[in-house]
């Protein structure tokens, strides 16, 4: 059996199923927060793009406000954001702990970041293509839906990849203040209890996760870039 071997290599890890649960928690936090981040960040990014100077719906005031909000949220370190947001989190999901408690701060931390990436990706779309659509009588909504988003899809996929990887880091940090997952194990056992094998295993798992996300993301970007 493999159990004795694992035991000699990682003497402190007596409950592998706990590690498994932590993995699942991390994946749940990542999946849930990434989905919500895209759901909120994409429209916010489109708004930033459209209302920007010289763009289709230039509105300097609205852009200024949205931009400031995004910058503020982006400049607060995630761990602090998480603590500050605790009452909001509690109001939203009824708990400050666990996977559910982690998702609101993760989304609020990552959505502005993703929105900026969306804005940048949309700005890469050639002005001429937008103009051609306007000349065909497209409405702003049609331009967003049928020109901007499809034409920027490689940039958007790259943005989602970067955001997902940033979220992996955030979930690990969240572990320190009770959100569970791999970060929680690393912090509680690896750091507070000096069980370095816990630290090693969780770090390796996180590295593998990041690596997989990057590879998967790069693949999609490459496919979209071909045309």
């Amino acid at each position: 059996m493999t159990a004795p071997l694992l035991q000699t290599l990682f003497p402190n890890i007596d409950d592998w199923s706990e590690l498994g649960r932590a993995c699942i928690d991390t994946l749940l936090m990542l999946g849930g927060s990434l989905a919500l981040t895209v759901l909120i960040g994409l429209p916010l990014g489109v708004l930033l793009y459209l209302t920007g100077r010289g763009q289709l719906r230039a509105m300097p005031k609205l852009y200024g406000i949205a931009s400031l909000l995004v910058n503020v949220l982006r400049s607060v370190p995630f761990i602090i954001l998480m603590i500050v947001l605790m009452p909001v989190t509690y109001a939203l999901v009824g708990t400050k702990l666990g996977v559910r408690g982690a998702i609101p701060p993760l989304v609020i931390g990552a959505a502005p970041f993703f929105a900026r990436l969306v804005e940048t990706a949309l700005r890469e779309v050639q002005q001429g293509v937008i103009e051609a659509a306007q000349a065909m009588g497209a409405s702003t909504w049609q331009i967003v839906r049928h020109v901007l988003l499809p034409e920027a899809r490689a940039g958007l996929a790259a943005g989602i990849t970067v955001t997902a990887i940033a979220l992996v880091g955030y979930t690990a940090m969240g572990g320190a203040i009770g959100s569970g997952g791999l970060g929680d194990l690393a912090y509680r056992y690896g750091y507070l209890s000096y069980k370095s094998d816990y630290m090693l295993v969780t770090v390796v798992l996180l590295v593998v996760l990041v690596q997989l996300l990057q590879m998967f993301g790069d693949r999609i970007v490459a496919r979209y870039k071909r045309h």
Partner: peptide, 12 residues
């Protein structure tokens, strides 16, 4: 309308 740089949708 047609354009100097064609302005086609590259993704389509």
């Amino acid at each position: 309308m047609i354009f100097q740089h064609f302005n086609l949708l590259a993704s389509q």
